[in-house]
Amino acid sequence: MKMILLSSVGFYIGERVIVEKKAIQQGGFSNSNDKVKRMLTLSHITKRYQNTVVLNDISFDIPKGAVAGIIGPNGAGKSTILKIITGFEQSDSGDVIFEEKKLSLLDEKVALFSYMPEHLELYPDEYVADMIAFMQNATQYRDDALIEALGLNTVMSKRIRQLSKGYRQRLKLFFALSNRKEIVVLDEPFDGFDPIQLENILALIRKENANGRSFILSIHQLSDAEKICDYYILLNEGRLVAQGTIEVLQKKFGRKDGSLEQLFMAALR
């Protein structure tokens, strides 16, 4: 009975995501009659560090069930916007709204988002097995399949500082995915992967996405973003340049079948 119920829930989540995916591909909420439910809205976010404006009045929406890519060159404000979304940085003005509810406290955001910053050293002197056990004990959630999917079972007896960059990225992904939050926010998650590893990781993200989790990724490699994202936020020098699905962007910049790189270059001009 329990199995039937669980598989029904899985089917429901899967079907709902497929419906939402189709809607995203059809253009998302580009007009007032939203085809897709807005999941996250950033409204007029501004952030300054001393006299430098890092984010300048940025507003965008992210649809539910999306794999949203925040795209932009170095210094565009990608990491800062992720920190503001997840509560680890305060904006000077503007709101972060999740399904009509304004989020202001770190606790509210922590309950919702799983965030892995770009610069996370983990605990270099700890063993991988001990850190995984710590995470599993603390969250009371065990997913051996996830460990295997990330290939971490082969490095369990190593200290974290002995791991290659790719494996450290996988461990970070493990932490991000194993706390079962609804929205996973990853800052430059594909750095350090070779093409084969990257394909495995992309497959894992697609699988998690198909199971109902939304992703917000900051990516500076446009080719990587194109492989996984179905929704884009384009930033440059702290300003929003464009947002939408690839189809919406192609339409906006008048380049039918244009690649993300071509669209981004067009947006910058």
Partner: peptide, 18 residues
């Protein structure tokens, strides 16, 4: 300091520990 240097506080807060 090590939590700050390694940025692991973000990890602990999300487990979530207060």
């Amino acid at each position: 300091i090590s939590e700050k240097e390694q940025n692991t506080l973000t990890l602990l807060l999300q487990i979530p520990f207060s």
